[in-house]
C-alpha cells in the first residue's frame, strides 16, 4: 500500500488553533464523555419510568409504556436525530423555534435528548424484565404488610430488579457511548467527528481512526471495569441473581 505513515502527526499542531491533533481528538473525547453521561442519565430516568409503567396493574399504563418503547425502538437512531434537529424546531411556534435553533450548544442538547430517549426504550425493556423476573410473591408480600404500590416498588421490587439487570445495563451504557458517534451528523465534534476532521485536514486517515479506536476501547474498558466493581459492591449475599 502506498501510504505515508507518520504517527508523529498526532503531536503536530492542528489548524483549528487548539494545540496538536491529539488535543483535537481529546477535545472530541470530552464531548463523547459529556454526551454519553447526559444521554445515559436521560435513558435511565425515562427508561425506569416506562419500565415500571409496563409492570403496573393498569391496562392503560402497560399499553402507553408499550407504545413508547415501540416508537423509540423501531425508528433508526439517525432518523430520530434528524427529526429532533431539523423537524421539531419547525413544528414549534416561530419564536420558540428560532430560540431553539440559535442555542449555543444546540447540537449537544439535541444529541442528548435523541440518544437518551432512544436508549431509554431499551432500558425500559430491561427494567420491566428485571421486575417480571422477581417471584410474584414479592409484590404480594409488599401489599400484605400494608405498603402502597409506590412503596412496594421503591423498597422491595426495584432494588432487586436493578441488581438483576445490571449486567445488561452495562451493555446498554456501552451502546450509548458508541451511539454518540451518530451526533457528528448534526455537527457535534465528538470523538469520531474529531477523527474525521483530523483526517481531512492532515490526510492521515489511518492514524486518525486508529487513535480514535484505541481511545474508544480504553473508554469502554473503563466503563466495563467500573460497572463490574459496581455489581460486586451492590451484591446482596445469598441473592443469586446479583452474583
Amino acid at each position: 500500500m502506498n501510504y505515508h505513515w507518520n504517527w508523529g502527526i498526532l503531536l503536530e499542531p492542528s489548524p483549528d488553533g487548539q494545540g496538536t491533533y491529539l488535543n483535537m481528538l481529546l477535545g472530541g473525547l470530552r464531548w463523547t464523555v459529556l454526551t454519553s453521561l447526559a444521554a445515559w442519565a436521560v435513558a435511565l430516568v425515562f427508561g425506569s419510568l416506562v419500565g415500571v409503567m409496563r409492570t403496573l396493574p393498569s391496562w392503560i399504563a402497560v399499553h402507553l409504556g408499550g407504545a413508547y418503547i415501540e416508537l423509540f425502538r423501531n425508528i433508526p437512531l439517525l432518523v430520530q436525530l434528524f427529526l429532533w434537529f431539523f423537524v421539531i424546531p419547525e413544528l414549534l411556534p416561530h419564536d420558540w423555534g428560532v430560540w431553539v435553533k440559535h442555542l449555543r450548544y444546540g447540537a449537544f442538547y439535541t444529541a442528548v435528548v435523541a440518544i437518551g430517549l432512544y436508549m431509554s426504550a431499551r432500558v425500559a425493556t430491561q427494567v420491566s424484565a428485571g421486575i417480571n423476573a422477581l417471584p410474584k410473591g414479592q409484590s404480594m408480600a409488599g401489599t400484605a404488610i400494608g405498603l402502597t404500590p409506590a412503596q412496594t416498588y421503591r423498597y422491595i421490587l426495584l432494588p432487586m430488579a436493578y441488581r438483576i439487570v445490571l449486567p445488561p445495563l452495562t451493555s446498554e451504557f456501552l451502546n450509548t457511548i458508541k451511539n454518540t458517534s451518530v451526533a457528528l451528523t448534526i455537527g457535534l465534534m465528538e470523538l469520531t467527528g474529531a477523527a474525521r476532521s483530523m483526517q481531512e485536514f492532515s490526510f492521515h486517515v489511518f492514524e486518525a481512526f486508529t487513535a480514535a479506536t484505541v481511545i474508544y476501547l480504553a473508554l469502554n474498558a473503563v466503563v466495563t471495569i467500573g460497572m463490574r466493581a459496581l455489581e460486586r459492591a451492590l451484591a446482596v449475599p445469598g441473592f443469586n441473581a446479583a452474583r
Binding site: P15, G17, L184, G187, M189, G193, R196, E200, F201
Partner: peptide
Amino acid sequence: VVSTSGTTNIRQVTEVNAAKGLNINILPAK
C-alpha cells in the same frame, strides 16, 4: 455560521474569526 467539518473552509473561518475577534459561533456540518 455553518461550514462543512474537516474542510479548508471551516479552518479559514476559524482563523478569520480569531484574528478579527468577530465572536462568530461556528457550527460544523457533516
